[in-house]
Design a protein around this nucleic acid. Structure first.
Lengths: 204, 204
DNA sequence: GTCTATAACTCGATAGAC
DNA sequence: GTCTATCGAGTTATAGAC
């Protein structure tokens, strides 16, 4: 080996720590000290790697939100029939969120504070793909393959059913008395239940 | 008049200002100075009325989250048939959120940070009511009035469809290019669309 | 009750040695 | 690259006059 890759480099530990802290606390709530502690270094070194908090946040937000959307692209771009796409769209989405259940809260609460920034940096790729999906739904309606309704409303229904449970996760767990394992199982069932629920509603 | 009620008392102005600021910024992002300014007083006086930021926050959170759930109680406790309840549950809920679109983000992001606190202080009243509603749904399923599925999943679907659009409002507006007026109209349509969508899916 | 002034503190950021 | 020490801005909170 000519080059030694330090597998657990300082930079990587910083990013991992920052991700945890930002996802849990949001930009305003996160503390550089806390990130430094979790990365096992001190604040000065943190600033050495990422000039300031804003740049660090930016990096994490980019990473997180670029994971968050694009897997979906594959499904939409595929040549499956619509019901198949809906099934896979929902189950893939829920699956991804199960592995990253902090993401929706994080992304949404930051978009909520900086909508313009989000639009400029993250929407340009994803927008057209989703627009195409909505267009495809409209075509199926015109052909009377599915019930006629607003395609925008239907799309919003779809993402609501997938994403909301993860945003409401702490509330739901506390309210229903579910523990982590039970919640996981409940979401597992949802991968089938959600598309079934949707298709049941729109099929002719 | 024996007693003069100062209709726009300092305390009330503080609470109104604090509500605005906390709803927009969350606990961590809100500044006492900002609240004081919006209330037209200074920080010292703010501390005179509410010993510290935490106590002030607590008060607002209590007020906001106690508005957030209970209107729903009336609908659930009424003696309408199930489909009627679903219709009114959704339309009332969406209506309430239209007037307070910051609430869901606020409540959820704080519950997310302090789940236990929420459980202890705000769940005791609402829990049983919602449990009764879910129970009623189960009964209708047993009687084969509606399709059989998990009543918990159905209930979660219902609240997801109502609440999520308001959480995603900034994201949705940026993505779809809707302005405030168009979004309002879109939500107006949703008051009919959501219950229709649900009932279409569960009816026999 | 309300104000001015300021203490006390938190936190992001930098200087400078190693 | 990494550390210790410290600065300085911004905030919460209090003292004390009116």
């Amino acid at each position: 080996m000519v080059k030694t890759e330090k597998i657990d480099s300082t930079q990587e530990r910083i990013l991992a720590a920052a991700k945890r802290v930002f996802l849990e606390q949001g930009m305003a709530g996160a503390r550089m000290q806390d990130i430094a502690d979790k990365a096992g270094i001190n604040k000065a070194l943190l600033h050495y790697y990422f000039r300031n908090k804003d740049k660090l946040f930016e990096t994490i937000f980019k990473e997180v939100s670029s994971q968050f959307f694009p897997k979906i692209t594959d499904v939409i771009e595929s040549d499956m029939p619509l019901f198949g796409k809906i099934e896979r769209f929902c189950s893939e989405y829920i699956d991804m969120l199960q592995k990253n259940s902090f993401m929706p809260m994080f992304v949404l609460s930051e978009v909520h504070k900086q909508p313009q920034r989000f639009k400029e940096r993250f929407w340009k790729n994803m927008g057209p793909v989703l627009a195409r999906f909505v267009g495809e739904i409209e075509v199926e309606m015109k052909k009377n393959k599915i019930k006629k309704m607003s395609a925008g409303q239907l799309f919003l229904n779809m993402v609501s059913l997938c994403i909301f449970p993860f945003i409401a996760k702490p509330l739901w767990m506390v309210s229903s008395g579910m523990d982590e394992a039970r919640f996981k199982q409940f979401m597992e069932e949802r991968k089938k239940e959600v598309p079934k629920f949707i298709i049941e509603s729109i099929k002719n």
